[in-house]
Amino acid sequence: MKRFVMVCGDKGGTGKSLAARALADRIRREQRDALLIDGDGEIGNLFQFYAKLDAHGEPVADQAPDGVVPVRFTGTERERDQLLAAVDPGRPLVLADMPAASLTQLKQFDAETGFFPELARAGYRPTLVNVLSPFSASTRTVREMIGLAGKQADYVVVVNQWFGDREDFFMWYGHGNSPPSPGYTLLPEYGGIEIALPKLQAGVLVAIDEQLLTFSDAREDTRLTTPQRSRLHRWMQAVDAELDRAAHYLGLAGSSG
């Protein structure tokens, strides 16, 4: 089954693009036949770190084969339509890092184009990935996400451990006499799965971002110290273990290239 994976949410600052970068890194490491899309266009995190560059360090014009296609989903109708046009090449996996407020925008886009039925017609099963912070504005978006597509999609909720441990996410899991978030209750009813995004030490992430490195490249780059590269390696292992739990939904099941 072909997969159309969208990392989305209606709130910024949850770690959405970090999760998308981690998934993109795994896809590239395994040489999977995938089309990567940055819904924030050329200013987006995924494009900045994973775009294909020429010998002068500039992004190549044709990003589709093994780079990141910039799509400004908040732009004009023609620009938004590029998201649906991504099914035309028929790649077995499409990964899109969607912009902030993407759930609201996707709802409108689906109303305009029949987005989710068209994905099904093209042989794609969509997966909506929602990265959570502990705050109520973030946890509420899971119910909105499921309400957007219902049984037309699969769902992966990613608890970002950068913000703390399980007890810090009490608005998601519930606490004392307070029930869990409605999204937490709905997720298993719709066959969804919850995974974690392990915490990466801030100094390591800053060093990677300063050099605009992919995670795989940073693992071998001597501009990072040995402890930094070692911590990154352990983090990548922990992330891969979590991604493995949702491999079927994320297009990571089966053999790679």
Rank of each mutant, 00 (worst) to 15 (best):
A241D: 09
A246M: 00
V239W: 09
L84C: 10
K107L: 12
E118S: 10
C8A: 15
A20Q: 01
Y50D: 13
Y249S: 13
P59A: 13
W172L: 10
A24W: 03
R219T: 14
P117V: 01
F215R: 05
R72H: 09
E210P: 00
S230P: 02
V156P: 05
E79Q: 13
G9D: 02
S256I: 00
P99W: 02
L35N: 01
T185A: 15
A149N: 04
P65D: 13
Q31R: 14
D221I: 10
V158R: 05
F109M: 07
V142T: 15
L103K: 11
Y190Q: 02
A64I: 13
G257A: 11
G114K: 00
R80H: 04
G254S: 03
S255M: 02
A34Y: 03
A86K: 05
G203I: 07
Y155G: 03
L205M: 15
L250I: 09
A101G: 12
F73Q: 03
P65S: 12
E194W: 05
L132V: 10
V158D: 03
G164Y: 06
M1Q: 00
D54K: 11
R80A: 11
V7C: 03
G254F: 04
V71S: 04
G174E: 06
L224R: 04
P59K: 10
E112F: 02
F49H: 15
E112L: 12
P117D: 02
M98W: 12
V87K: 01
I43D: 15
D10P: 05
A22T: 09
H233S: 14
A22H: 09
V129G: 14
Y155N: 01
S255H: 06
E58S: 13
R143S: 15
V159E: 08
L46I: 08
L106E: 05
E42C: 02
Q108H: 13
E167Y: 02
R143F: 14
A247L: 05
L224M: 06
A34R: 00
T225W: 04
P117T: 06
L243M: 02
T225S: 14
L243W: 01
V68K: 00
A55C: 09
V7S: 05
G150F: 12
M236A: 11
G203Y: 08
R26N: 09
S17R: 08
G90E: 07
L119R: 06
L35A: 02
A202R: 13
Q237T: 14
P198R: 01
M236V: 11
A111L: 13
N45G: 14
G15K: 09
R166N: 00
S102P: 11
E210S: 00
K11D: 05
G164I: 11
L148T: 10
P70W: 06
V158G: 01
F115P: 13
M1A: 00
D40K: 04
G67R: 04
F215Q: 03
G44T: 10
C8Q: 05
G251N: 08
Y124K: 00
K2Y: 00
S256E: 06
N177A: 13
G12N: 12
T127Y: 03
R72C: 09
Q63T: 07
P227C: 02
K16A: 03
G67T: 09
V204T: 15
V94F: 11
P179W: 05
A51R: 15
